[in-house]
């Protein structure tokens, strides 16, 4: 490891007791933070101190701390997951901050996501989107041999690019319209690119887009903020593919 040093920071953290509480920023000092620690480990240190002082620690979601589960995520100085490109909050290290910095930490803000407490929000609308049609209908058992249908490597790779979405919701939080188009586009692309996903492709695109409206997500205004902030660098071309699927389906299919 590099020779770590320690830094001191001023935190402005959003505290909110529940969905009905108005919420406010509170200021804390984070002292002697190793630059080798992650952002979440920095919050751990602050929380241990708050606890010992008899105060309530800051609630935040996290689990894998490896950038793959999609559970973590807050807005850091106005940017979802913080300043590093292609990085989840748990993989953001304190070496990217300087001694004396002030850091504002807020929850995802979007009409579809309610605050549960402090930095924790309810992202279940993303699950609902998948429940509508974000799958291939293949019951367990009786599937053809895995090699029965060759899939060109390039297609498999493209599908995998889209499948890398971790469902964190940063795209929604970064979008001025709080749209979930990048998330939906990624799923529609992941499945629709594969031969196995084609039979339901039209239905999938239409159902997911309708459900998105119903759940209170906004429309895509082509602002491209989502792509810039996505920790998995999901490409905005997935939204174009979603739009194509959607229009193709609307014009040529009877599922409308």
């Amino acid at each position: 490891m590099t020779t770590a040093k320690t830094i001191n920071l001023n935190l402005k953290v959003w505290r909110q007791n529940g969905p009905k509480d108005k919420g406010r920023f509170e200021e804390y000092r984070a002292s002697d933070i190793s630059t080798d620690s992650s952002f979440l480990e920095m919050l751990d240190v602050v929380n241990e101190k708050l606890t010992i002082e008899g105060k309530e620690p800051i609630a935040f979601d996290h689990d894998c701390r490896e950038g793959i589960c999609g559970m973590c995520g807050t807005v850091i100085n106005g940017r979802p997951h913080g300043p590093e490109k292609g990085t989840t909050l748990c993989q953001l290290h304190m070496r990217h901050f300087s001694d004396g910095d002030t850091i504002a930490i807020e929850p995802w803000r979007a009409r579809a996501f309610k605050v549960i407490k402090d930095l924790v929000v309810d992202r279940s609308p993303l699950d609902k989107l998948i429940q509508t049609a974000g799958y291939i209908s293949a019951n367990a058992g009786g599937c053809p041999d895995g090699n029965a249908v060759p899939i060109p490597q390039e297609i498999a790779e493209k599908s995998m690019d889209a499948a890398a979405c971790i469902g964190c919701g940063a795209c929604v939080a970064s979008c001025p319209n709080a749209s979930a188009m990048l998330f939906v586009g990624a799923k529609v692309s992941h499945l629709g690119l594969l031969p196995q996903g084609k039979p339901e492709a039209a239905m999938r695109a239409i159902s997911m887009v309708r459900e998105m409206d119903r759940l209170g997500f906004g429309n895509c205004g082509n602002e491209r903020e989502c792509e810039a902030e996505c920790p998995k660098e999901i490409s905005i071309t997935n939204i174009a593919r979603l739009n194509r699927e959607f229009f193709k389906a609307s014009f040529f299919s009877s599922v409308m």
């Binding site: 367990a140 599937c143 895995g146 060759p150 899939i151 490597q153 498999a156 196995q196």
Partner: peptide, 22 residues
């Protein structure tokens, strides 16, 4: 062996060779 077939059918984008096989 059934697991692989199941996962492919569900759309798991396993790595593939140039010929398109797993």
């Amino acid at each position: 062996t059934n697991i692989i077939d199941q996962c492919v059918a569900q759309g798991v984008p396993f790595a593939r060779d140039y010929g398109g096989l797993l």
